[in-house]
Design a binder for these strands. Structure first.
Lengths: 351, 351
DNA sequence: TACGTTTCAGAAAACGTTTTATGGGCGTTT
DNA sequence: AAACGCCCATAAAACGTTTTCTGAAACGTA
């Protein structure tokens, strides 16, 4: 190798002799505009502090070279990456996906990028692993969407020193939490059915290690108890239509059962099906309420009475709280997103 | 301010006098282990090139200080960030969400982080903007999940110089493309209906500016033409159950229509509903086929015959192709993921 | 005109890692 | 016993930005 040219300050050529092997740096812009790198940096970050004509010259150079600041270099000195991490379960479920999109949208509006880390499972170890991955990426803040009890426990043990907000993690966490009003929604759903004259309401729940499942069970139970009703045994599914179908078949066989509150709409689809197969009409013989209000809910046959969760608000609030923490604020530490009962045709008066 | 201590090399104290205001750097580990920073770096990156006893000492120090490499610094010198960008439409639709998760999973397995950029709309400008955002984040490669025609056009104009793979973008792109076999799936669905004795098959499509919608229209049309059948006018929806319902009502009124191929399962839900309301039985009077095989499909009433897309494969292949490109390979440039007709109870012999 | 104040721009150091080049110790070969 | 390699470890430079400090010019006022 003969000598080699100095790397710093020289015009960039690639092996073939073409210009621009490496992309433009601050230095290149500065040279073209005839100013120092600092002036370029300032022009970009605090434009008002540089004289209009200088600014114009710099911006022209930026434009001409298609200059894009190197985030890594900036981050190295500022300590901020402009990236937010989102840890979530790796699932097709409507809720988590919708929440993720809402977070991303809110973050983007504020100029943050979003790094996602999916989790195969969600034991405390696995969630710690996800957090570790994102910390390695130097994220400025973290939103943990971990609806499992175990995961929530994992959140407690997390390394501090990084702003963090949990979504759906239940009460009593050492970090700010945003969650939908599962309990209230479930109670309203149950109350609605009781109000229609049903003796009691059966419940098909989600996996009991999910916070949301627990909240819905609790709301359902307390509504029954408030009305002095018998609290039937909880049937526990896994959120899938298939599990709804399977458990629904049990219930369909018992003619005394006239009202079912299902913990999510997907399982409700399976329940509706099992009732159809058993020849029990909805809502004439049996009333069904779901949870989530997935887009299909209003177009099932019959259309599904359900509890709507506003995932967009959920994600938006999670981001807002995180931003607050990142700025050092600490006012709010729990935000409950209200849920809404949407009455459609799958519920009717008790037979 | 009195003097101030030198920042470099000094032990880190915060204002209160506690240690570890800043997190451990290579230098700190090196000091503790009694070696140079380079030895630490090598221990972490090429462990076999350092003597076992030294290695042990270094690793102990790493452990003790809870050292995590600073990605920004590493990236600054290597030019690699270890981050992949995924730009996608900002939607709740099952397909895109499932694809994103599949990509994330595959990337994670290979040690890459994933940065997502949602798009409000997907005109060429908006997609260029999304790509720009991710380039700023110094991603090592880019997967563009942009099912719109307009977006696909936008991909053509993208800045080169960054490995890029498009998902669902159609043929003839200047970049590698991974897509599901929309056309074949639609043709099989249509052929299935014709095989059951139906005169012809009506089609409710997705928005015609979506590549997937175009592919399915084309498959449906060619299957009809191959059978010498009349090709009815295409009714175009927006993927939502509501639009399926609205368009379904038109078709439900015409007793000559006995077979409908719907471009996705969500719209099919709306179609089923409109048929029920009109008193037309499925499959006795009308047969319906959907597309996607969403989890609910098998539990609708009647269960829905549909074309299954393997989104996991789609995402996995997209990542594989991208990795290939990032390594400089250029063998494959088009990968078609096969689709599969799943026959259930919503299709039957022509009346 | 001289002085103090403000505004604008530049120089140098620093962020934490890897790349490249160099040096010392040790075993093997003649 | 000297010379040659090889392995292991180190020193210094470089990546591209911002922070901090310093200087010069421009402005207003006395």
């Amino acid at each position: 190798m003969e000598g080699g040219m100095p790397r710093r300050g020289g015009t960039a050529f690639d092996q073939a002799g073409n210009m621009r092997a490496r992309s433009a740096a601050l230095r290149d812009v500065a040279a073209l505009a005839g100013v120092s790198t600092m002036t370029v940096s300032r022009t970009l970050n605090e434009p008002e502090r540089v004289r209009p004509d200088t600014r114009a010259r710099v911006l022209a150079a930026v434009e001409r070279l298609d200059y894009r600041p190197n985030q890594a270099a900036r981050q190295l000195v500022t300590g901020r990456s402009g990236v937010l991490g989102v840890v979530g379960v790796d699932t097709d479920l409507y809720g988590p996906a919708a929440t993720l999109y809402a977070i991303e949208r809110a973050a983007r509006r504020s100029g943050y990028a979003v790094d996602v880390a999916g989790l195969g499972s969600s034991d405390p170890g696995s969630i710690a692993e996800g957090v570790r991955r994102l910390r390695t990426q130097q994220v400025d803040g973290l939103i943990v969407v971990v609806p499992h009890q175990a995961a929530a426990d994992g959140v407690r043990d997390l390394h501090p020193g990084l702003p963090l907000v949990a979504v759906d993690a239940g009460w009593g966490m050492p970090v700010p939490v945003v969650m939908a009003d599962q309990t209230g929604g479930a109670a309203r759903a149950t109350g609605h059915l009781l109000g229609l004259g049903h003796e009691t309401v059966w419940h098909i729940s989600g996996p009991v290690d999910w916070m949301a499942a627990q909240g819905r069970i609790q709301g359902w139970r307390s509504a029954l108890q408030a009305g002095g009703r018998l609290v039937p045994e909880v049937l526990s599914g896994d959120w899938s239509p298939q599990s709804g179908y399977r458990l629904g078949r049990h219930l369909a066989g018992d003619p005394h059962i006239t009202a079912i509150f299902v913990a999510n709409d997907q399982m409700a689809v399976g329940v509706l099906r099992s009732l159809h197969e058993a020849g029990r009409r909805v809502p004439e013989d049996v009333s069904v309420v779901g949870f989530d209000d997935i887009p299909e809910a209003g177009y099932l046959w019959p259309s599904l009475t359900t509890v709507r969760q506003n995932f967009r608000d959920l994600g938006g609030e999670a981001f807002r709280l995180l931003l607050q923490r990142m700025k050092g604020g600490t006012e709010e530490s729990l935000k409950i997103i209200s849920t809404e009962l949407v009455v459609r045709r799958s519920t009717g008066r008790a037979p």
